[in-house]
């Protein structure tokens, strides 16, 4: 879902950057106030893992491949959507600047789609679904799927505003492919949460925000 430079005209790319920077500032404030010293190893390892797995494209049929984005995973594990913004911002900076994956001008839009939308949709739908079905892992899979799918539809709308994709075919294609890619997002998110929960339940905040 990494938008390359060519896909968004500069004035629009600048607006996405401004919105993204507001969330990045809030994420830094979250890290300063909420991220405890004990969780620094977890957030660093999680970010390294998310970077690695983003290079691992899996085929989803339809001539298309996809990979975990990790916004929902970061937000659920660290107990805040801003954790997703924090991790994905750094991952996207390295991917764009060092590896040419995702544009520089479009990095703001990519931070919004994958960090902000992936993180916020993932985090709040996780806690919503978990209060309905009493399970720690299935809601994580559903929330991660939703984060991927909604981010893809928003991306299609951004592509329409940019004049790059037509509206309806863009939404159909982005929605269809990411409905499939979202299954990867869901399975890996639930699996990773299970792994962390089995080894370091003290580090994970699955129950934060529950009534």
């Amino acid at each position: 879902m990494h938008i390359p430079d060519a896909f968004i005209p500069l004035p629009q790319a600048a607006i996405y950057w401004i919105i993204a920077l507001i969330f990045v500032a809030l994420a830094l404030r979250w890290a300063r106030n909420e991220l405890s010293e004990e969780k620094i190893p977890l957030i660093a390892v999680l970010a390294a893992g998310i970077f690695a797995i983003q290079a691992f494209n899996l085929p989803v049929g339809m001539g298309t491949s996809g990979h975990l984005v990790g916004g929902a995973l970061a937000a659920i594990v660290l107990g805040s959507p801003f954790a997703a913004v924090f991790i994905l911002t750094i991952v996207l900076i390295i991917q764009g600047v060092v590896f040419g994956d995702g544009g520089i001008t479009t990095m703001g839009a990519n931070i919004i789609n994958m960090g902000v939308i992936g993180g916020f949709v993932g985090y709040y739908s996780y806690h919503g679904i978990k209060s309905a079905i009493k399970n720690k892992f299935i809601p994580a899979a559903i929330a991660a799927w939703l984060g991927c799918f909604i981010a893809a539809v928003v991306c299609a709308i951004e592509m329409f505003i940019a004049g790059t994709f037509p509206l309806v075919p863009g939404i159909i294609a982005m929605g269809t492919y990411h409905a499939a890619i979202g299954i990867i997002e869901g399975v890996i998110t639930a699996g990773a949460i299970y792994l962390i929960y089995s080894t370091r339940p003290d580090l994970i905040e699955l129950d934060k925000g529950d009534a």
Partner: peptide, 20 residues
């Protein structure tokens, strides 16, 4: 995961490229 990706990752276009 990173090393495995070098050998095993799919070369098909990703979701956005495919949509394009």
């Amino acid at each position: 995961i990173g090393v495995a990706a070098v050998f095993l990752a799919s070369g098909d276009p990703d979701g956005l490229e495919s949509a394009s």
